[in-house]
């Protein structure tokens, strides 16, 4: 990298900070930026700054948003009585893309992970409980990942809601659509059998 002019070196160093970007890839990206028209580079720089300046957490569900309330929370067509609890905004997007859910969300921004020191206090749990106590919530739909951490987070929320008159549901687990039973692992198969339903 020593042969490059200092501004290029600086750009490579900055790009190198991105997850999954090594020095070689960073150099390639820097070359690409260097060769692109100035307005493209400007647009890239501006969109980075715009994201940093404008994006914040929705005051209700903690999804990422430009305004005080996110698009979902401010949509009158969404069912306010159902809250889907997810680990992070990526899970929210995945559920939204399915087009099958019309309730609201609550983003925890993490899951319980004792060995990493992540306990209930590091998650947006207090805010979830406040929302449940002040709103007319009928159902809490737990959609944390089916990993040890995701399951234990769901169990914790379930315990916290034990004495409340609220329906608590868990996202279904099972065979992927178009999948083949013979390639399904033991754990998923056991869950698919457990979650079987009448038709």
């Amino acid at each position: 990298m020593t042969g490059y002019a200092p501004p290029i070196r600086r750009l490579i160093r900055e790009l190198n900070r991105f997850p999954g970007i090594g020095e070689k890839t960073a150099t390639r990206l820097a070359q690409f930026i260097l060769k692109s028209p100035e307005e493209n580079a400007k647009r890239l720089a501006e969109s980075i700054i715009e994201v940093k300046k404008k994006i914040r957490f929705c005051s209700t569900c903690f999804n990422l948003t430009e305004d005080a309330l996110c698009e979902i929370c401010s949509d009158p067509a969404r069912e306010n009585g159902i809250i889907c609890v997810v680990e992070n905004p990526d899970s929210l997007i995945a559920i939204e893309e399915s087009g099958s859910y019309s309730g609201t969300y609550h983003v925890l921004h993490g899951v319980l992970s004792p060995a990493d020191g992540i306990g209930p206090g590091s998650l947006r749990l207090t805010e979830l409980m406040e929302r449940i106590s002040e709103n007319t919530v009928k159902e809490v739909f737990l959609a944390t990942n089916p990993s040890v951490q995701g399951e234990s987070t769901a169990l914790l929320i379930m315990k916290l809601l034990r004495d409340k008159d609220i329906r608590v549901t868990r996202i279904g687990l099972g065979i992927p659509v178009g999948g083949d039973l013979k390639y399904v692992d033991k754990m998923t198969m056991a869950k698919a059998i457990e979650f079987r339903r009448g038709i």
Binding site: L112, P114, A115, G117, G119, P120, L156, L160
Partner: peptide
């Protein structure tokens, strides 16, 4: 241990 701290936190919450 970090998990000891988290365990205590969960117990307090319960």
């Amino acid at each position: 241990l970090k998990s000891v701290r988290v365990l205590k936190e969960i117990k307090r919450l319960m």
